[in-house]
Design a protein around this nucleic acid. Structure first.
Lengths: 338, 338
DNA sequence: CTGTTAGCGCTTTCAA
DNA sequence: TTGAAAGCGCTAACAG
């Protein structure tokens, strides 16, 4: 049986209150006493029971992280960075993976983390009024990563501007017929990037005086396989696009495969640009819009923990981080008709 | 303030003990009573405080998952599958990311999850006697994913055999000078695949009567970048290999890039085979050794939860799942000298 | 600076 | 089938 605070108190010859204080590094403990307590704790391999501590103090030393999927590059990266930041500050990470729309529904219905964390961080979800209200009613700070909302801590990039930049890059290269590979607008998961990146695509075309052609917008479900199928559909059009903007690098990879299998060259026959600067983008020589994943994760985690430490001083200003156009071979120097 | 069990008891007109029993679905509660309690709980949006429940019952309804890294494909996949399996059974996932050797050291020194989970699952670590002893002394079942050890629940693949198969495939294709891209043998993280896959490589060569040439063994650190650099070194050898076995697909991708940049063809000049069947392997047309990640994760999680439910019936037989050779273009049909 | 004591919100005997 | 009451192992006033 593991040692309890009483065992330590007995061995050190003090009361359990003193043990508690000494071990937590509170002031007003004589150095000699503290040393005796620490020695006793070490000798008994004592660690406080987190549940008892939480029940008594009300603080959980845990932050909940909610992601729509864990096995997609962006989220794996986010989990990594958030976990490290939390661990460094002495917090545990409770991971909640929505997985699909049903899981998402269950989550908002039950808010299973309601009573078990000191703060919650949610990534990349489009939420409705009711959902925001539910989150806002939680008795602790809630942070948003990848979206913004007045009253909540939030850190994100400007997805619309990023997508616009990508399409403008293609326009500058002389492309006029630009295909889009995006997410499913009706996906009940309501994941943010498909919506905002789609807007950016439309904006850029409109600014260039090009009418959007629904035929050129294919659904790739944000997966490699989906991107490949979407590209195949675009390539099969009577008048196929000369360039494709994929809303994620993973879909762009799939597109590259379909283009190659169709016997076409990149960028001569079809130029391709993705979004994210995924770890393999450089390897694939894929032009893309880079977004700072680690910096976003670190920023929101740090501010969230600050809000936990001092709830009165919550910094709910939305932080927007810059994206960057990375030009590689898939949008090369080739200009259609030029 | 959130409702407590007392509020529910008062509203339902019963004692808190009855509320507790009714809500947990214990037998010996009159149907009418149970309904009244459920109604009251719903009305008050009551959820039991997990900490109080844990303190009182000793059960945490949480499983700890320890991984060396979270942002590598294999582990992201494992986390996803384990999380889903746990969630389905009503367990929370507490994620612990070692990150580096220091983090690993801290973990085994402090065993921070010691008192906060009902079971622990550790993935892909080579552990020493002392570490196994520490884990074995935990008051709950510990599962191993990707390694085996008598007395512990474990599920893994036969990495040695998988690597042997990969190299045998190259040998059958007529290659005699086969390079290896692996991990760093001195890496203090002590991650399992580099060791066992290296053994498989050596075994296959020995069985074919080929003497291992240390020059042909390059360190790629299990990253794309590392794989690229390792391949560049192999290609720069006076007598370069005609084939390369990379211990992970991610390193193989890097190798493919270096080969292409060196102006060489795959598989004519250099054949390449990886390991894992990473999500992009098919896209890259990479031959590889497929391992069942989801099946392994599900198997160990299920058995671990069974052990939690009935500690007397722990099934410590090691389960070994099959790997499969997937032949694609990078080992093509080309035969050197043939 | 240290000890006493009253909870934190549940679960779990034990009695009724 | 239900209720009373004793903890679970800590933290946090409050006293001294």
């Amino acid at each position: 049986m593991a040692a309890s605070i009483e065992d330590v108190a007995r061995l050190a010859g003090v009361s359990i209150a003193t043990v508690s204080r000494a071990l937590r590094g509170l002031p007003d403990v004589a150095t000699a006493t503290r040393d005796r307590v620490l020695d006793a704790a070490t000798e008994l391999h004592y660690v406080a029971s987190p549940f008892a501590a939480r029940l008594a103090s009300g603080r959980t030393a845990t932050v909940g992280l909610v992601v729509p999927w864990v096995n997609r590059w962006f989220f794996a990266e986010v989990i990594d960075k958030v976990e490290t930041a939390l661990r460094t500050s002495g917090y545990d990470l409770l991971l909640y993976n929505l997985g699909d729309a049903r899981g998402r529904g269950r989550f908002f219905e039950q808010l299973p983390m309601r009573k078990r964390v000191d703060a919650m961080l949610i990534a990349s979800l489009v939420m409705d009024e009711q959902e925001f209200t539910a989150l806002g009613a939680l008795p602790y700070p809630v942070g948003l990563l990848g979206m913004r909302r007045p009253g909540f801590l939030s850190t994100c990039i400007d997805d619309v501007a990023g997508a616009r930049t990508a399409v403008e890059h293609l326009l500058e290269r002389g492309h006029r017929r630009i295909g889009l590979i995006g997410g499913d607008a009706d996906d009940p998961m309501r994941y943010t990037p498909p919506l905002s990146r789609h807007d950016g695509y439309r904006d850029a075309l409109a600014a260039a005086g090009i009418e959007a052609d629904p035929q050129l917008e294919a659904v790739g479900y944000f997966t490699v396989e989906g991107g490949a199928e979407a590209a195949a559909r675009l390539l099969a059009l009577p008048h196929r696009p000369s360039a494709i903007f994929a809303e994620s690098d993973e879909m762009a990879y799939g597109a590259l495969r379909s283009i190659a299998r169709a016997g076409l060259r990149v960028p001569e026959d079809v130029a391709v640009i993705g979004f994210d600067d995924h770890v393999l983008a450089e390897l694939m020589d894929l032009s893309t819009i880079r977004q700072p994943v680690a910096a976003q994760a670190l920023d929101i985690t740090t501010r969230l923990l600050a809000a936990v430490a001092d709830p009165d001083l919550v910094d709910t200003e939305a932080v927007t981080m810059p994206t960057e156009l990375i030009v590689r071979a898939t949008t090369g120097t080739f200009r259609p008709g030029g």
